[in-house]
Simulated scan of single mutants.
Amino acid sequence: MAEFDQVKLLAARYRAASERPYLASALYSLTVVPSDGVPTMAVDRHWRCYVSPAFVAATSVPELAGVWIHELAHVLRDHHGRADRLPAADQRDRSRVNVAQDCEINDDLLADGLTLPQGRMEPGLFGLETGRLFEEYLAQLPPSVVCSDCGSGAHGAAGEWEVTGDRGGVRPVEADALRRHTAEAIRAHQRNRGSLPAGWRRWADQILEPVVDWRRVLAGAVREAVAWAAGAIDYTYHRPSRRTAALRGVVLPSLRRPLPVVAIVIDTSGSMGEDDLAAALAEVTGVLREVGVGGNRVTVLACDADVHTAARVTSARQVSLAGGGGTDMRVGIEAALALPERPGVVIVLTDGFTPWPEAPSSARLVAALIGADPPPPPAWVEAVRVPRIAGA
């Protein structure tokens, strides 16, 4: 293997993260793997970034910074997951798929002022419009096009130089959380500092603004349950009643409307696959946003046949998932109801293959049922069906 200038490569990543801070967390989640087998840089499904030492030596730091962001874009945009859904004939033509994906990415990177090495693929080389998805470019490309292999994190097919397994990489659940965090950072950057390329804005909107009906149904169920739990149920003298002025010498209390406490129970049993857990974790951010309560009002519990973690959170990134055994969501619901601050709303994210409590409690119970055909819960449980997702 040629001498590897790791300092130069990491300096380029630091430059990319400093100039585009909304990508920093995702950039630093990529694991560097030096390899003479890859021609330039590439990324696999598990966010491992393979780097040619010779390419690093021959490439300037500004160009390396651009390539860092290019490879990151493949996994952020779930190119491998989308490639898996292509017709079989297209999947076999992985070089052409890679070219189409590079066209989707590079027009945004060039519009953002990034410097990329010579030989890059972009829509203009083929007389195509900018701002399209790779699936659209794929149908319009010439039959025989070739580009540098960006790895299984792009076209989905593992190269001989790729490490097997997911050890040392990013798991699907973590990748989904990174996508959502990056999309939120893009939104914040756009609000505070100005415009971004259309492709990044569109991608963030797709991640953060789901368009399918079940999410609106879930949000509505959560809002209704929270409104029910936050009803005026107690009196306080901190704010006297308006009727006090009419009664001399008498101070009347007023009704107070407390913020509800919400518990989210996530099914981490063996029947929940990684895509199911990714779907569940993705919903935590949405629930936190829809609840609209202040910090430290939401507790997330990871449960299979036992409760493994329980913690108050303000972000999905703070959620720790553990389990993998049998399934009994009754244990998680009981633990939620036994919290020091009893929740008014309990939301259970599960595939539905679990026993349920025999009778309703004083808390409102909402079940988000993940999967194609989950068994129904008892009639008194508010149920919303959540389709399986792969990535985001």
Rank of each mutant, 00 (worst) to 15 (best):
L218D: 06
Y137P: 01
H74K: 03
P355W: 10
G249E: 07
P343F: 09
T299M: 10
R364G: 04
A335W: 00
A336N: 12
P142Y: 08
L9P: 08
Q318T: 07
R132Y: 05
E224H: 08
R120E: 14
P360Y: 04
Y137E: 06
L133G: 15
H308S: 02
R82V: 09
L218F: 02
T236Y: 10
I333T: 10
G332C: 10
L138C: 11
W214Q: 03
P172G: 09
C103G: 01
W356N: 12
N296H: 11
G165W: 09
Y137Q: 03
A83R: 06
V348G: 08
V51C: 08
H70V: 10
S315V: 00
T236K: 08
G332N: 08
D112A: 15
R248K: 14
G165I: 01
H155F: 04
Y235Q: 03
P143S: 06
I333P: 07
T244L: 07
T236W: 10
A372F: 00
D304P: 04
L208I: 15
R13M: 11
E3V: 15
R187F: 04
R167Y: 07
V211M: 14
H189E: 11
W161D: 07
D205V: 14
P360M: 07
R242M: 13
G325Q: 08
E135S: 15
C49Q: 12
P240H: 04
V170Y: 03
S52H: 08
A229T: 04
F353V: 06
A310F: 10
A198N: 08
G231I: 00
A89G: 08
A263V: 07
E358W: 03
M121I: 11
D328Y: 11
P53W: 12
V212P: 00
S144L: 14
A175I: 00
V313M: 03
N192Q: 13
G344C: 06
H46T: 02
L76C: 05
Q101H: 00
E63K: 07
D213T: 15
D205F: 08
L109W: 11
G325K: 07
E104V: 04
S315G: 02
M329W: 13
S254Y: 01
A227P: 00
A232H: 13
A177H: 00
V251G: 00
D275W: 04
I333L: 13
E19L: 13
S52E: 01
K8M: 02
D102W: 02
H155S: 04
E209V: 11
A229N: 02
T354Q: 03
R92N: 01
G324V: 02
Q318M: 10
S148V: 12
Y237R: 14
